[in-house]
Computed example of a mutant assay.
Amino acid sequence: MGRIDETMDFVPVRIAVMTVSDSRTVADDKSGNTLVDRLKGAGHQLAARMILKDERDEIAEQLRLWCADPEIDVILTTGGTGLTGRDVTVEAHRDVYEKEIEAFGTVFTMVSLNKIGTSAVQSRATGGVSNGTYLFALPGSPGACKDGWDEILAAQLDYRHRPCNFVEIFPRLDEHKRRK
């Protein structure tokens, strides 16, 4: 199991939060609020926040815009990861990924299995990298957002987490663009 090396300095990460929903507003966006509260509570910075409808092209376009923004390191989306016809967040993410982090979905499923049993098979949580930015799609329930943050992302977005973490490899995510 990992651990936090308290001898190291914490490095705050700039995180954008997108809620994908045809019905949510800022006033009732419990899942988005859960992520914002947790990332700020951990010492990270909220770089941007928005709510978008379940429209694949619009979601992918916003993900691309945020990936191109040097003030955003990580994008968290909530909602649209299920199996219904309107659930298109995973497809939008995959339209943007340069590399998928397959193990993120696997670990999320393992965490969910312990919390909600076999209902975990209905989630399609995913993670990836594009343009030097991490992207993670979480289900639209506050509980799933708590699980994704508390059990996976809090540690992986903490530079002090050992034996390794996502933050320490930020400088290498786009090294292929610098090699000539």
Results as ranks from 00 to 15, higher is better:
88 V>L: 13
67 C>I: 09
15 I>Q: 02
118 T>C: 01
72 I>P: 00
132 G>R: 08
47 A>S: 07
7 T>S: 11
19 T>V: 09
149 W>Y: 12
6 E>Q: 11
43 G>R: 02
20 V>D: 08
114 N>H: 09
165 N>Q: 13
31 S>Q: 14
95 D>R: 13
108 F>I: 07
3 R>N: 08
96 V>L: 03
126 T>G: 09
128 G>W: 04
76 L>Y: 03
163 P>H: 01
125 A>F: 10
38 R>N: 00
27 A>C: 07
130 S>P: 15
174 D>K: 14
143 G>C: 10
8 M>Q: 05
163 P>S: 10
57 D>M: 04
89 T>D: 09
114 N>D: 13
81 T>F: 14
113 L>T: 14
138 L>R: 05
139 P>K: 02
148 G>E: 06
137 A>H: 06
174 D>S: 14
121 V>Q: 09
22 D>H: 08
168 E>V: 07
155 A>K: 05
163 P>V: 11
152 I>E: 04
77 T>S: 15
30 K>F: 14
24 R>Q: 07
1 M>H: 08
52 L>S: 00
45 Q>K: 08
70 P>R: 06
88 V>E: 07
41 G>P: 05
22 D>V: 03
67 C>F: 08
103 A>M: 14
19 T>N: 04
96 V>F: 01
26 V>R: 12
165 N>G: 08
29 D>N: 09
144 A>I: 08
35 L>E: 06
68 A>R: 07
135 L>F: 03
151 E>K: 13
88 V>G: 00
64 R>M: 04
56 R>K: 15
164 C>I: 11
43 G>I: 06
74 V>P: 01
26 V>C: 00
158 D>H: 06
60 A>T: 04
76 L>P: 09
24 R>G: 08
28 D>Y: 00
86 R>Q: 12
53 K>F: 02
59 I>T: 11
155 A>E: 10
12 P>Q: 05
19 T>A: 14
68 A>F: 04
28 D>H: 06
103 A>F: 14
177 K>I: 11
11 V>Q: 09
80 G>K: 05
19 T>Y: 03
108 F>P: 01
99 K>T: 07
180 K>H: 12
55 E>Q: 13
69 D>W: 07
10 F>V: 00
71 E>A: 12
100 E>L: 08
29 D>T: 06
54 D>L: 03
172 R>L: 10
170 F>D: 04
60 A>L: 03
62 Q>I: 06
170 F>C: 10
129 V>F: 03
176 H>E: 10
120 A>F: 05
44 H>L: 01
98 E>F: 13
48 A>E: 14
4 I>F: 01
86 R>S: 14
135 L>P: 02
65 L>N: 13
46 L>I: 04
86 R>K: 15
140 G>F: 05
35 L>I: 03
114 N>E: 13
155 A>I: 01
39 L>S: 09
32 G>V: 15
142 P>I: 00
90 V>M: 11
125 A>T: 14
45 Q>V: 02
167 V>M: 15
54 D>W: 02
166 F>T: 05
126 T>F: 02
50 M>W: 01
13 V>N: 01
69 D>F: 08
156 Q>W: 05
81 T>N: 15
92 A>S: 02
150 D>V: 13
83 L>F: 15
120 A>K: 01
148 G>Q: 04
86 R>A: 09
176 H>N: 08
77 T>W: 02
52 L>A: 13
93 H>I: 01
158 D>F: 01
124 R>S: 15
171 P>S: 03
90 V>T: 14
83 L>V: 15
12 P>C: 00
34 T>G: 05
